[in-house]
């Protein structure tokens, strides 16, 4: 288990994190969610014993990470935002070097290396120099160094950053495989990535812990606030104002934003206090307007995230 209590970090006089407290149980996959500058990387670097906290305490597997960082480092594998690679080395030599640094014997490395190359799908490039590899492969090498010593806790900071769509899917599959054997902590500001991968989310904003729980928990807590988007085909001389009045009159709709063209019609964004998609569809049909699309303006998690981190900042 990882237990952080009143953890904070200052860079000079500027507070980057905290105080925050949280617990991560064995076998969990937890996502650190937040905008850029929210304190995710700082939190993960402290957990990986790369940085020391300004105050507070961290226990990793019952060991105090501030008092005995050496012992904690043996139990943790860390993939930072930029993979810590030596580009002049071959993939196999680099992984061997990383394993030696973590205290593995030559025999252990010889036994473990083929498994790591297999899991990260690097077997074919094992003898290639890292500097000649693509970004996606380098990211995999970064994951390789993090898992080579088979750590109990795996910390991945923005693991899909800079990857193309195919590589993102491959990385997601890799993380799903890693979840079977490690307690995994992932940071990201990409909601879909986090929601598809993690059991539980910790939402950070301006260094503070804004929310914690499963996606269902977080959405449930914020479920009274939603946005619905409606796309209508209006007559050529159609009046936006008439359509807006129809939508405004629906029970539960508190405001209608100025419409914009989308998907061959005009899209209206409605602020609602509850899920009123059924009422909206009925009102539109009654007013003899053509309904092209009706949905949440954002996913429920996105809405929750934006509410938690402060609304308009997030939507930018």
């Amino acid at each position: 288990m990882i237990r952080a209590t009143n953890l904070s970090k200052y860079y000079g006089g500027k507070r980057a994190l905290g105080p925050v407290s949280f617990e991560i149980g064995d076998g969990e996959t937890v996502g650190f969610l937040g905008l850029n500058g929210a304190g995710k990387t700082t939190a993960l670097r402290i957990l990986a014993c790369d940085l020391r906290p300004s105050s507070g305490s961290i226990e990793v597997g019952g060991v105090d990470a501030v008092a005995d960082p050496h012992e904690v480092r043996k139990r943790i594998g860390f993939l930072p935002e930029n993979p810590p690679l030596y580009v002049d080395m071959t993939v196999a030599d680099y992984l061997r070097f990383a394993a030696e640094l973590r205290g593995m014997s030559k025999a252990e490395i010889t036994k473990r290396l083929p498994d790591v190359l297999d899991v990260t799908d690097l077997t074919d490039v094992a003898s290639e120099v890292i500097g000649t590899l693509s970004h996606g492969f380098r990211q995999r090498v970064g994951v390789g160094q993090a898992i080579v010593h088979n750590p109990k806790f795996l910390i991945l900071d923005e693991p899909t950053r800079g990857l193309d769509p195919v590589q993102i899917v491959e990385m997601r599959t890799l993380i799903h495989d890693l979840k079977q054997h490690h307690t995994v902590l992932i940071s990201s500001h990409i909601l879909t990535e986090i929601s598809q991968t993690c059991d539980r989310l910790l939402v950070l904003g301006k260094g503070q812990l804004l929310g914690s729980g499963s996606e269902a928990d977080l959405v449930g807590k914020e479920s009274d606030i939603r946005e619905v988007s409606v796309t209508l085909r209006l007559p050529k001389d159609g009046d936006h104002a008439a359509a807006t009045s129809v939508l405004k009159a629906v029970e539960g709709v508190s405001a209608v934003a100025a419409p914009f063209e989308q998907g061959g019609g005009m899209t209206f964004t409605l602020s609602t206090s509850r899920d009123c998609r059924a009422e909206v569809s009925r009102a539109v049909v009654t007013a003899k307007l053509d309904l092209l699309k009706l949905d949440y303006a954002r996913s429920e998690l996105e809405n929750t995230f934006i509410r938690l981190v402060g609304g308009t900042d997030a939507s930018n």
Partner: peptide, 9 residues
């Protein structure tokens, strides 16, 4: 690459 050294024992 310093992070690899810093996060190793």
């Amino acid at each position: 690459s310093m992070i690899l050294l810093n996060t190793s024992p």
